[in-house]
Design a protein around this nucleic acid. Sequence first.
DNA 1: AATCTTTATCGTATATTTGCGATACAGAAT
DNA 2: ATTCTGTATCGCAAATATACGATAAAGATT
Lengths: 110, 110
Amino acid sequence: MAVHKKEEFSAREQNLAAFAKAISHPARIAILSVLAKRNQCICGEIVDILPLAQSTVSQHLKELKTAGLIDGETDGPRSCYCINWKAFEKFNTDFNSLFEKLKEAYAKCC
Amino acid sequence: MAVHKKEEFSAREQNLAAFAKAISHPARIAILSVLAKRNQCICGEIVDILPLAQSTVSQHLKELKTAGLIDGETDGPRSCYCINWKAFEKFNTDFNSLFEKLKEAYAKCC
DNA sequence: AATCTTTATCGTATATTTGCGATACAGAAT
DNA sequence: ATTCTGTATCGCAAATATACGATAAAGATT
């Protein structure tokens, strides 16, 4: 009963899905939104903004970082995160190439 | 220990997250990809293409439909799905308005 | 050096997702 | 009317995700 067959799909499908998964939680959207709105990286202010415990926020940040959506250096009692725009560009490109190219051939059939 | 505080975020954040969640699995990406490549809706062919059992595919289709990414009519022994392009446009718009508008102010700081 | 502050990690409880087989359902075919 | 065919749903097992408190880690402050 080997649950989870994600590996059996193409790399492209897996990559897109992984990016989507990273932004599939409102808290992570909120974090990215905060990071996007500032020119500079911010640190623990995110914890004050979100309605979540510090450990939970840290966990979400880790997921975003693991997925490559943000970069972050944590030196000592202070850490600094910022958006990895290249990852976003790649997602946009891949997403559009998959779902947008046939839009003009759009024939509503149901 | 009230797990899951998604409700405490803004509607916009929840909507974006919900869309992302819908496409956060390779199987669902694959399904959407197949639907996008055809002008007509297809039915059980998806089951033949994906490395998953029929019941599992049906479940993924249901999730996509519930999330509003696809439309589907099932009449009798045959069902017909197709992509809801408007939902995709909305996602693209919301996504870009959240994450793209400050790209030019991009100051790499870490 | 001892303490403070900030962030990461661990452990754990609960909720959700994924996947399959079995079965129900509904129109089509015989 | 009975059988066939394609799809949806149910029930269950296993994997993942979410959240928090407690604790560790590491530089800053005193």
